[in-house]
Write a protein that binds this DNA or RNA. Structure first.
Lengths: 259, 259
DNA sequence: ACCTGAACACCGTTCAAGT
DNA sequence: ACCTGAACACCGTTCAAGT
């Protein structure tokens, strides 16, 4: 933990994870009277609030209220709201089911492991729609993010892609999943806020669009394509798109093997 | 344009573009004295400010100040800040160079057109890093967004993908570009804010990471992969990743033709 | 070591009032 | 038709002070 004065000496610090000093908060006193707060409690409650009410309503004052404390108490444990968000971000990355890529897992089919990691990443983004803007905002170098990135690198390294293409392959797959999960997560959150099902929301938006003058032609093609894809619910349609897109990516990687 | 009272009658409105009444602002009076403001000026200045100072510093009060007017004047032209952002979003989508997919363009190679559209989308995201969170937030049904989506659909429809796979293919390509452009745009913006070049920022972050205990192994693989990819500057490295990733996607689509 | 109260410089938006 | 001033209910953060 770093005081405001220390921070002034390190003005280019770009991440909580690059703090000097104790990484997990200020030194705990050995004294018997336990403090009412700690970083982990603050982070856990932040995640809960962000999930429940969305990032727009998340404030230091609101969070403090939920913890039965004044807003200023929080500043004993984190330097800024930004740092807190970065901590919350890495904390939900802990939910990722990262396949075993070391011992026995190093012999598994890279395609299966890639699918597993992609599916898991997607579901984190959907469960926590506030995560995706933060992934863009921070460096993503917390321990859980790093474990994820490391596993992804190992999996793609075994795909047969030429060495010069592995980072590009990583981009292709995980930026896709990021984009997909972002849009999906926001859609789910919007429906929940509006108090309608995804199918209701979708039907309403499509209806409104069809009435727009000059958009008939565009909608015709869109509907034709949606028809061909099939799927009875919005969730099923999205699922088909995700699966097919992932298969395109895997097929593309296979096509680029050794070139 | 819709008054607060009208809006109350349409509580499920989910986009400025689904407003009832005049789509381009309130009716202009025929009177000779021109008003000092109009929607287009407000939108243009919003884009300028968002580019220059980022979304965190963008406020109705700040914007009004820049336009030489009080904050409340703006509410004559837009219902909420949210609506204004949605308008600004579609406005920068107007910068997209959408290939001709209708007449002669319908015979062009779909790969070339897909690359052109992807490159253009990426560069919009990088020039305007505030765009990417908004793409997640809104429905993206403004006229420029729709033209983009329509062109993308037409291009993918000619790729040889089976009809049921076209929407998945669209996801794969454009969610990838979205994710890539998001991360890239934020990185560029962060460097500008910190007043360092991308290469300096990158070197600093890598250096800090290498010093972290227990991250040696992960960094070794990452550096090996970056070595193999090559590229002397951060921009060049990113360029290689983007190009290769896009070729993976195209190869994947080709592999899925007719299946 | 840990927490608080008051204060500063901000927000988006409403509403009644001006011209 | 278009714009303003005052007001409401908020923000993140600092700082001096309490225990």
């Amino acid at each position: 933990m770093v005081s405001a004065a220390d921070r002034a000496k390190n003005p280019t610090r770009t991440s909580v994870w690059l703090e000097r000093g104790k990484p997990a908060g200020r030194a705990r006193r050995s004294d018997q009277s336990a403090p009412s707060l700690d970083r982990d409690r603050i982070i856990a409650e932040s995640v809960r609030l962000l999930d429940a009410e969305g990032p727009a309503k998340f404030s230091m004052r609101r969070l403090a209220g939920e913890l039965g404390v004044t807003a200023m108490s929080l500043y004993w444990y984190v330097d800024t709201k930004d740092d807190l968000l970065e901590l919350a971000l890495d904390s939900v990355f802990g939910e990722l089911r990262v396949p075993d890529v070391e011992g026995a897992g190093a012999d598994a089919d890279w395609r299966d492991q890639l699918r597993e990691l992609a599916v898991s990443y997607r579901s984190v983004m959907v469960r926590h729609p506030w995560v995706s803007p933060l992934v863009g905002r921070y460096l993503n170098i917390g321990p859980n993010s790093m474990e994820f990135a490391n596993a992804a690198q190992k999996i793609l390294s075994r795909s047969g892609l030429p060495a010069h293409g592995v980072t590009g392959g990583l981009s292709a797959v995980f930026q896709f999943v990021y984009g997909f999960g972002t849009i999906e997560g926001h859609f789910v959150a919007r429906c929940a806020e509006a108090g309608v099902t995804q199918d209701e929301y979708f039907a309403q938006a499509m209806g409104a669009l069809r009435e727009r003058p000059g958009f008939h032609e565009a909608m015709d093609l869109a509907e034709e394509l949606m028809e061909a894809r099939g799927g009875d619910t919005v969730e099923e349609m999205r699922e088909r798109d995700f699966v097919f897109a992932l298969e395109i990516l895997i097929a593309g990687i296979e096509a680029k093997r050794g070139r």
